[in-house]
């Protein structure tokens, strides 16, 4: 049977791995090739690179980074951040990315997802959804899609949006809870479960991991196919191997 996936996420700024909480207090955490190699050796099932470089002029640096990593790491690599059109998708795929993650541009133009999916295959099109609880207390729970790092409201209902963008051609969804991101309080499993139920494609959980139990909860309570985590791996709290051992002990099928 298909294994549940553990995916370390690396924030990349001008060709370096950085770590920081919600883009504040950003610190250098090393060379992407070295970090990627370390996670690969620990048993990571895939890697996600999120380019947080502010300037478009630095884009070629990202391509070099992707190329350098792809030359040495033979597990799937997803790259996101600033993917705006098919030329961006193509450039990342030819640099060696296996999938690209599209966020803001999917909201601005859902047909871009259809076009990219039709041209490059839906299996390489990941749509990232940043969602936030917007209901008032005592109202039924409701999540809205936000863009621009969680700053801009779109008015879109997250569950409806997930359904629509999968129809458009998203091959996989990367769902981040803005409420939980950076809190280490665990994923928003209610959100994950609602989205996972609404779509037929795999869902990756993101935002809020602080313990290994949170990873388990993402699978068990959130019903997701993969979990993404950044800080627990970068800060060395746990290795990917330890995470897999823990999950395996609790009955989750992981690649050994």
């Amino acid at each position: 049977m298909l294994a549940k996936r553990i995916i370390p996420c690396l924030d990349i700024d001008r060709g370096r791995v950085v770590k920081g909480i919600k883009f504040e207090d950003v610190q250098d955490a090393g060379d992407p090739v070295e970090v990627a190699r370390k996670y690969d050796a620990q048993g990571a099932d895939e890697l996600v690179f999120l380019d947080i470089t502010a300037s478009v002029d630095d884009r070629p640096t990202l391509f070099q980074t992707v190329e350098a990593v792809a030359r040495q790491i033979y597990i799937p690599l997803t790259v996101g951040g600033g993917v705006r059109n098919c030329a961006d998708v193509r450039a990342l795929l030819s640099a060696g990315a296996d999938k690209v993650s599209i966020n803001t541009s999917a909201v601005e133009n859902p047909d871009f997802v259809s076009e990219a999916g039709a041209r490059y295959g839906v299996q390489c099109i990941v749509v990232a959804i940043d969602a936030k609880r917007v209901n008032k207390k005592k109202e039924p729970v409701r999540w809205e899609v936000f863009t621009h790092g969680g700053r801009k409201s779109t008015g879109l209902d997250a569950i409806e949006w997930a359904r629509l963008i999968v129809q458009k051609g998203a091959g996989e969804l990367l769902v981040t809870s803005i409420d939980r991101d950076g809190t280490k309080g665990g994923y928003d499993n209610e959100l994950l479960h609602a989205i996972s139920d609404a779509v037929s494609v795999p869902v990756i959980a993101s935002g809020g991991v602080g313990t290994l139990e949170h990873l388990y909860d993402g699978f068990h309570d959130g019903g997701v196919d993969a979990v993404l985590a950044a800080s627990i791996f970068h800060q060395g709290t746990y290795s990917v191997g330890e995470a897999k051992q823990y999950l395996s002990n609790r009955g989750v099928l992981v690649r050994s």
């Binding site: 298909l2 795999p202 196919d225």
Partner: peptide, 21 residues
């Protein structure tokens, strides 16, 4: 076969994506 849209816990997603034996 496409997964049923009933949110059953062990339904299989399509595409089959990830590591398998």
């Amino acid at each position: 076969p496409d997964p049923p849209e009933d949110g059953s816990p062990n339904r299989l997603k399509v595409p089959h994506m990830g590591w398998n034996r």
